[in-house]
Design a protein around this nucleic acid. Structure first.
Lengths: 131, 131
DNA sequence: CTTGACCTTCCAGTCACTGGAACCCTTATC
DNA sequence: GATAAGGGTTCCAGTGACTGGAAGGTCAAG
């Protein structure tokens, strides 16, 4: 398979696939004309990567996950640990964003949004934290 | 004020303050020795920036907000519009993260996490999307 | 005079791509 | 055989918002 087809089938842009090769996540063969020649196993890996990235795993996490995936004697505990750590990070991030949202939402609602200059949003941003 | 004190008082690292000068968000004066000399108004701006960044506004948003803040004839609608757009982005991001979290959480719970190799997390990541 | 805590600039790295330029290969059509 | 479209290739630069580190200047205290 050429890169275009693999892109279509894996859901990843060609650029990204080239990048993944560059950082050693996939190692496609080469045709005589220099084109990358992807095997089914490469496609499979790329789809795996796409899914893992969609779930927010970092590239380094993905690298580890791929290794674990290919290590048939892995302990599922290792995978679970990684996934749990990632889950916690996501939950932290959500909490942080929710706190932003709550504050912002309040500010937005308190602002008249007309053509007068008085604006509680700017007032809040400019507020002294303490003296 | 020297940068160290402004850092302490604004809550921003010195490095960040230098960076903000570099991109034109603040324009402190200079002492004869080359040290940055911050006025109260600079400190005030930096605290404003810190607060806005904490709420997740991009640097470019911050630049606009600062301009609006200093334009005493602004319309509060302009501020509100910017804040609302940002709020929507945050809400989208939250939704996206929640969807990740839900999937991940399910996967984590379905995985025994023992020393056997069987792992639903990897299975899911490797699943074909369609044929 | 030296020590240590400041301050300065400049350069490189982060993360995971993404865009673009310049060029090569393949296939079809005229 | 020329040409054009639509693949593919490499390499370089840029993104956002810092952050780390090196190499060096300045200042106050002892």
């Amino acid at each position: 398979m050429n890169i275009g087809e693999v892109a279509k089938r894996s859901g990843l842009p060609s650029k990204t696939i080239r990048y993944y090769e560059e950082i050693g996540l996939v190692k496609p063969l080469r045709d005589v004309n220099g084109y990358r020649a992807f095997r089914d196993s490469d496609l499979h890996k790329l789809a795996f990567l796409n899914r893992a990235r969609t779930l927010g795993f970092t590239i380094e996490d993905c690298r580890t996950l791929l290794t674990l995936y290919e290590d048939k004697s892995r302990a599922s505990a290792d995978v679970k640990e990684l996934a749990e750590a990632h889950l916690h990070k996501i939950e932290d991030k959500i909490a942080q964003l929710q706190s932003m949202r709550d504050t912002l939402s309040e500010l937005v609602h308190s602002c008249a949004g007309d053509n007068r200059p008085d604006c509680p949003i700017l007032k809040d941003l400019a507020a002294e934290t303490a003296t």
